[in-house]
């Protein structure tokens, strides 16, 4: 098992490529890897309650740790206590922690 840190700064409403990125996260997790998907910038937009998840639910179901950048959520007025089940707010410290840990890090 390997550990991956995937950083998604885009949202699925802007480009279809994001859905491919979600599928990559799911496939890495399904293959038995420990995968974190860190949503940042507009990447957090699907984390608003009621937003279309466009594949993000499958990512959650596959066991990927889905985190939303606290600043990006706050910047967009998305309340951290209303995030969909399976998405957790996290500080950017997590990214530095996981980079320092030596995870395979991919800015999607």
């Amino acid at each position: 098992m390997e550990k991956y840190l995937l950083i998604e700064s885009r949202d699925p409403y802007e480009t279809r490529e994001v859905e491919n990125n979600y599928a990559l996260a799911s496939s890495l997790a399904t293959a038995g890897n420990d995968v974190t998907l860190f949503l940042v910038q507009n990447g957090v937009l699907p984390a608003r309650k009621g937003a279309k998840l466009n594949g993000l639910q499958e990512v959650i179901n596959s066991g990927v740790h889905v985190l939303g950048d606290e600043f990006s959520l706050r910047e967009r007025g998305i309340a951290m206590d209303t995030l969909p089940k399976g998405i957790r707010a996290a500080p950017i410290d997590v990214v530095v922690d996981q980079l320092a840990e030596g995870r395979k890090a991919i800015w999607l």
Binding site: N20, S27, K104
Partner: peptide, 17 residues
């Protein structure tokens, strides 16, 4: 295939996008 990505990635120390 995209389905091969986990296997392909596992062959490398780092993946740069």
């Amino acid at each position: 295939s995209r389905a091969e990505a986990p296997t392909i990635f596992s062959r490398y120390d780092q993946v740069w996008h």
